[in-house]
């Protein structure tokens, strides 16, 4: 199991952000975390990483998360980043090599080559010397993925990787993610677009402060579970039926 989360609970002042959320993420799986706004999806990711202090137990690769930190990569929401920051693409990726170079260490040719290789894997090697703010939204996402790759991670936590990117870029990112999974990586992404869940992911975690349902897309991503997570008011567009579980799919 890449990640095992049990009873994650977090209170912000008087608001319960997470209420005993639990989930398991097998190695090599690709999981979408879905749920309504305010369901605590981003908070879930951050508490898993210990970036916010929540109660509950989290184990990564069978041990404490802190021990596996080098293997875990976190890609923040686009809005959380100051894009006018004076860093070039290659500098961002080199930040992922920080554990190797150390606090004061200089960056040698091997480290640079490593960072360039990571950029090449996401198809961004030609943009290495651009300032990060000069890229499109999707390109920026790919740079952050490259940073995660440079870090040598095999567990990827992504917070809304497809927010604000166009369809072509979305396809490019998903291609990179699927290639990573083929190499044995585990991917967990907060996702918003219900219609693409089945096409992109093999597992789903439906949550609304607590776990509503989790498991393979085929058996878990059902109308009943969605209604439970989002409330009965959710009206699914008929074209979204593709994303529904097989039990409700019309017989072919």
């Amino acid at each position: 199991m890449a990640l095992r989360v049990q009873g994650l609970t977090l209170r912000y002042n008087e608001v319960l952000a997470l209420d005993g959320a639990s989930a398991q993420f097998p190695i090599g799986s690709m999981t979408a975390i879905i749920g309504p706004n305010g369901a605590g999806k981003s908070t879930f990711l951050k508490s898993v990483l210990g970036l916010v202090a929540a109660a509950g137990t989290v184990a990564a690769f069978g041990g404490p998360v802190a021990q596996s930190m080098p293997r875990i990569a976190y890609v923040p929401q686009r809005a959380a980043v100051d894009w006018s920051f004076p860093v070039r693409v290659i500098d961002v990726v080199l930040m992922g090599c920080y554990r190797k170079t150390g606090l004061l260490g200089l960056i040698d040719a091997a480290t640079s080559a490593h960072a360039m290789a990571a950029l090449a894997r996401v198809g961004m090697q030609d943009f290495a010397r651009r300032q990060i703010g000069a890229l499109s939204g999707g390109q920026q996402q790919r740079v952050f993925l490259a940073r995660a790759l440079a870090q040598g991670a095999d567990l990827f936590l992504l917070d809304e990787p497809f927010a604000g990117v166009d369809a072509a870029t979305e396809a490019a990112i998903i291609a990179v993610l699927k290639a990573l999974r083929k190499d044995g990586a585990t991917i967990i992404a907060v996702h918003h677009d219900l219609s693409s869940v089945a096409a992109y992911f093999d597992r789903v975690l439906l949550m609304n402060r607590r776990t509503v349902a989790e498991g393979p897309v085929a058996t878990t991503f059902t109308r009943a579970a969605l209604a439970q997570a989002y409330g009965p008011a959710l009206m699914l567009d008929p074209t979204d039926l593709r994303s529904e579980g097989p039990t409700e799919r019309p017989a072919a």
Binding site: L51, M69, I72, A73, Y74, P76, V87, M95
Partner: peptide
């Protein structure tokens, strides 16, 4: 640039 990543 990214305090969360730095922490990780």
């Amino acid at each position: 640039f990214d305090p969360l990543h730095a922490r990780m």
